[in-house]
């Protein structure tokens, strides 16, 4: 008599069962991440390499996007403030917008697209070409080497990139303010930071850390569990971006509510 002779009946329905199994698998994946991340040996060299790939290699895109965001947001805000003769408030308005919302969101969305798709596609490609299995049979822990390093790198690099985006965004804003109002850099900085509190900075850093972890864990989960050959690689890259962005918006809403209740 063969084991598992009877086909298993769905508990609720096939779709619902699959959904709950997926949720369970994701939580198992996250638990495994923390377990492996805390256990020696630590993959320091690979972690630094991933920080270079995720952080340094994203600088050009982040610089361009951050600078243009700051510049355009300032240009768009000027007419409304000019109606009330309040263009001197521009630095303050822009800095609040950039530090509290734009820098964390823009950085996270750019990284979800660039880094998330890259992690999803790379791990999926390694999975479907049996490179992950090859590591495993060579007595190497692929989860620690491939997943833990990438998730830690996104979690560490995205807050740093967020700080950089904020600086570049304010630089874009300063350029426009300086050209139109002849404001000096010192005056711009003084006005910009007068309304920024440690809570704003802390909340943005916290948000970016959560966004970074989300991008890393979602992309790594989808890539590491890819199937269906090359089609699976494309699917993992695509779904990594979509799910990461969706979760980033949900997390943004939740964290803003919490921070506002503290403020």
């Amino acid at each position: 008599m063969e084991p598992n002779e009877q086909p298993e009946k769905p508990f609720i329905s096939k779709g619902a069962d699959d959904f709950f199994i997926n949720v369970y698998e994701i939580f198992r994946f996250i638990a495994r991440f923390f377990r492996e991340a805390l256990r020696r040996p630590w993959e320091v060299k690979e972690f630094i390499h991933q920080c270079y790939m995720i952080g340094y290699k994203s600088l050009a895109l982040i610089s361009l996007t951050g600078f243009i965001t700051g510049l355009v947001f300032t240009k768009q805000s000027r007419p409304s403030l000019a109606e009330f003769g309040a263009t001197s408030w521009l630095p303050s308005l822009i800095s609040i917008a950039v530090v509290r919302a734009l820098a964390p969101l823009v950085t996270a969305l750019i990284c979800a697209g660039k880094v998330g798709s890259s992690i999803g596609a790379e791990l999926a490609s390694m999975k479907v070409t049996e490179q992950v299995d090859a590591m495993e049979v060579s007595a190497i822990n692929p989860f620690k080497y491939l997943v833990v390093t990438r998730v830690l790198a996104t979690t560490v690099c995205i807050p740093l990139l967020m700080c950089y985006t904020a600086v570049v965004g304010l630089a874009g804003s300063y350029l426009d303010v300086h050209l139109n109002e002849q404001t000096s850099l010192i005056a711009f900085i003084q006005k910009a930071f007068v309304n920024i509190s440690f809570l704003d900075l802390g909340a943005s850093l916290f948000k970016s850390t959560v966004f970074g972890f989300t991008i890393g864990i979602v992309s790594a989960y989808l890539g590491y569990n890819a199937s269906q050959g090359t089609q699976g690689v494309g699917k993992a890259a695509n779904v990594s971006v979509v799910v990461s962005m969706f979760l980033i918006f949900i997390e943004e809403i939740v964290i803003v509510q919490i921070v506002n209740s503290i403020r």
Binding site: M126, Q131, A134, V137, S138
Partner: peptide, 16 residues
């Protein structure tokens, strides 16, 4: 045990 058991994959599975 895996250090004593070598596995050769169909397409080599070399790290790209």
């Amino acid at each position: 045990l895996r250090m004593k058991v070598g596995f050769c994959f169909q397409n080599g599975a070399l790290y790209d």
